[in-house]
């Protein structure tokens, strides 16, 4: 069977077709497109970004992300966990906010430095 994908790995957004029996892949301009299609067919993953509450003089929210893509089906459960987290400044960019926060080894990290 032929399946269609749009590669989301870079802005070129290559349209990729794959024959799921022979695994012949067409349309990808680079190898990352092949990896993307493989993971879409087996276990689609996405990097989740959001915000959490922060006690700070300047801002209300701290932007965060998962330090690796998580399973697509876990996105909403992860959002639920994120909504309950709050931190206090100072926080550095890249700092782990909660390690292993959805019990699959993924860490939630800060994507901004808030000094005060």
């Amino acid at each position: 069977m032929e399946k269609q994908f749009i590669c989301i790995i870079c802005p070129r957004s290559c349209p990729i077709t794959v024959d799921t029996e022979t695994m012949v892949i067409k349309g990808n301009k680079c190898m990352r497109g092949r990896q993307y299609v493989n993971s879409e067919l087996t276990e689609p993953r996405r990097t989740l970004t959001s915000t959490i509450r922060i006690e700070s003089e300047k801002v209300m929210l701290l932007p965060v992300k998962t330090d690796r893509p998580i399973k697509k089906e876990d996105l909403f459960a992860a959002m639920k966990k994120i909504s309950k987290i709050s931190v206090k400044a100072p926080i550095k960019i890249g700092e782990i906010i909660v390690s292993d926060f959805i019990e699959d080894g993924t860490n939630l990290i800060s994507t901004k430095t808030i000094l005060k």
Binding site: I9, C10, P11, T47, T49, P63, V64, K65, T111
Partner: peptide, 15 residues
């Protein structure tokens, strides 16, 4: 807050 920045300039995906 979303990622997708820097793929062309830094070769990595940043927020």
């Amino acid at each position: 807050v979303h990622t997708g920045f820097g793929l062309t300039y830094f070769g990595e995906e940043l927020s």
